[in-house]
């Protein structure tokens, strides 16, 4: 069982959360020309890192906010959590 520290609600069990994938993926800007490759990278291609991975989770059975979680994909250790709009250094 993972325990995720929701920045809004505090420490909760993983059962309250839903996974949203790689948080480092950025949607191409709308007001500029987007190449097929850029669109491909946004929609399909993922690094799927082994080790530290910044990812989106939604606290679906809690505050329903999207949050960012920095987790190790090999050990499941969770290092830090952020609000969705927080910049991660």
């Amino acid at each position: 069982m993972l325990y995720i520290n929701c920045p809004h609600c505090g420490m909760r069990s993983q059962n309250e959360f839903s996974y949203g994938g790689d948080a480092s993926v950025k949607r191409p800007e709308l007001n500029k020309e987007v190449s097929d490759q850029e669109w491909d990278n946004f929609v399909y291609n993922r690094k799927s890192l082994r080790g530290k991975h910044l990812e989106l989770w939604q606290h679906i059975s809690g505050c329903r906010q999207w949050i960012k979680v920095e987790r190790d994909t090999a050990t499941h250790e969770i290092f830090r959590t952020f609000k969705a709009d927080e910049e991660v250094a």
Binding site: M1, L2, Q14, N15, Y19, G21, D22, S48, L49, R50, H53, E55, R71, T73, A74, T75, H76
Partner: peptide
């Protein structure tokens, strides 16, 4: 399990 994992072992939920 529902989230990226290289753990080769599962989670109970």
């Amino acid at each position: 399990d529902g989230y990226n994992s290289y753990a080769q072992r599962g989670n109970l939920p």
